[in-house]
Amino acid sequence: MRPTRLARFAGGAVALLTLSAGCSMLPAMPAPVPTSVVPTDLPQPSATSSGNLSPDGFDAAQRMAVRIRNIGCGSLSTGSGFALDDHTLVTNRHVVEDSATLELSTYDGRDLAAAAASSANLADLAIVRTDDALPAAPELAPADPAVGDPVTVVGYPLGRALTVTTGQVLGSQTDPLNENLGEVLVTDAPVEHGSSGSAMLDGEGRVVGVVYAKDSEGHSFVVPVSTLRAMLDDEAAFTPLAPCTG
């Protein structure tokens, strides 16, 4: 069986794992962390496609998507997130951990102040509280999507403009990065570095999962909405993150 490389991709902070039974070879070191990202005061081009969303659903998706810049102690990376309510957004744990400062911005270039962040111990999920109000929050779907269902991913690959990509659910498998989590979804919706934390939406614009990784075959891996709901309902599921000090 050919080894599969799986990457968690928050900007330049990329972790690679070789997933192959009995294979002990370590992957190559990731590329150097970038020293700059696209400033938020530059004009942000609009996404060119609404994917599988209706015009209203596309407009709502734009307004709920958030770009995240993690300024760490000697590092800088970017990721994506989406609003859960007026002052809470969802993203990945690896997008916000080891940060000194989190900088948030909306699709129209508006900067938001981050107040605090908490990470999940089980899944690659995190919650960020904001001082400023988020523009809009989507609805969480009541159930996970089925195999073959069309999906749309809305995020900020490479820390640049809001981007919409489409695909379908290919199936599910045991999470290769967090084996205690259980089943995660696999899709063919294209994602890139910086897409970590992007919402995956169904045709009605409801969140059906959170993107957290991709492999060398172009498959994206997604924490399903059922897992997200269960963790949001568990007060002990998230632990406050302290800023890095190094």
Rank of each mutant, 00 (worst) to 15 (best):
T48F: 00
S49G: 05
G51I: 10
L53A: 09
L53H: 11
S54Y: 04
P55R: 03
D56M: 09
D56V: 13
F58M: 06
D59A: 15
Q62D: 01
R63T: 02
M64V: 02
R67D: 05
I68A: 04
I68R: 02
R69E: 15
R69M: 11
N70F: 03
I71H: 15
G74M: 08
S77I: 07
T78H: 02
T78P: 02
T78A: 03
T78S: 10
G79T: 13
S80K: 05
S80W: 05
G81N: 03
L84R: 02
D85G: 08
H87R: 11
H87P: 09
H87Q: 08
T88E: 06
V90M: 15
T91F: 04
N92M: 05
N92Q: 10
R93F: 12
H94D: 10
V95M: 03
V95W: 01
E97I: 05
S99L: 01
S99H: 15
S99E: 08
A100L: 04
T101Y: 14
T101A: 14
T101E: 15
L104Y: 08
L104C: 10
S105H: 02
S105G: 02
T106A: 06
D108P: 02
D108H: 10
D108M: 04
D111V: 12
L112M: 06
L112I: 01
A113W: 03
A113N: 08
A114I: 03
A115G: 03
A117Q: 05
S118R: 15
S119H: 08
N121C: 06
L122Y: 01
D124I: 08
D124N: 09
L125V: 01
I127R: 15
T130S: 15
D131E: 06
D131Q: 07
D132P: 14
A133N: 03
P138A: 07
L140F: 13
P142R: 09
A143I: 15
A143K: 08
D144Q: 09
D144S: 13
P145G: 07
P145S: 12
P145F: 09
P145C: 12
A146E: 13
A146Y: 06
A146K: 14
A146F: 05
A146V: 15
V147S: 10
V147K: 07
T152K: 04
G155D: 04
Y156H: 14
Y156A: 02
Y156F: 15
P157D: 12
P157H: 08
P157V: 07
L158I: 00
G159N: 02
R160H: 07
A161C: 06
